[in-house]
């Protein structure tokens, strides 16, 4: 860090509050470093919605995966149910043939 940078006071410190009393100093670097409060507030609200949006997007993706898995299971259940019903039907026919 250069000497010039080390002398830059930051807002809220004792040095920053006493700058005016200390007399003329080169504050160009300090002024350039300042970020407008409106920009910070806008960034905060944008990031807030970005985080919530990302969570909602992830939740929607998880929901789609869960629904897809349930649909696949439903298809397998339907197939098994049909196979079981067919087997039961064959069993009834065989029993009827064996009956006196």
């Amino acid at each position: 860090m250069s000497n010039a940078a080390a002398e830059i006071p930051t807002a809220g410190t004792t040095e920053a509050r006493t700058v005016a009393a200390a007399g003329p100093r080169d504050l160009s670097a300090y002024k350039e470093e300042q970020i407008a409060g409106g920009d910070l507030a806008a960034a905060a609200y944008l990031l807030l919605w970005a985080i919530i949006g990302a969570y909602l997007w992830r939740t929607a993706r998880r929901q789609a995966v869960a629904e897809s898995a349930l649909r696949a299971l439903e298809g397998r259940l339907d197939a098994e149910f049909a196979r079981a019903a067919a087997q039961a039907g064959r069993g009834d026919a065989a029993a009827a043939e064996r009956a006196p």
Partner: peptide
């Protein structure tokens, strides 16, 4: 816990943006 962590992330992102202006860091 997920929702708590979500709003914790928002807290930790918005806090420094405010601190930069009010505390200078």
């Amino acid at each position: 816990l997920e929702v708590g962590a979500l709003f914790g992330a928002i807290l930790l992102v918005t806090g420094p943006l405010w601190a930069r202006k009010s505390w200078g860091t």
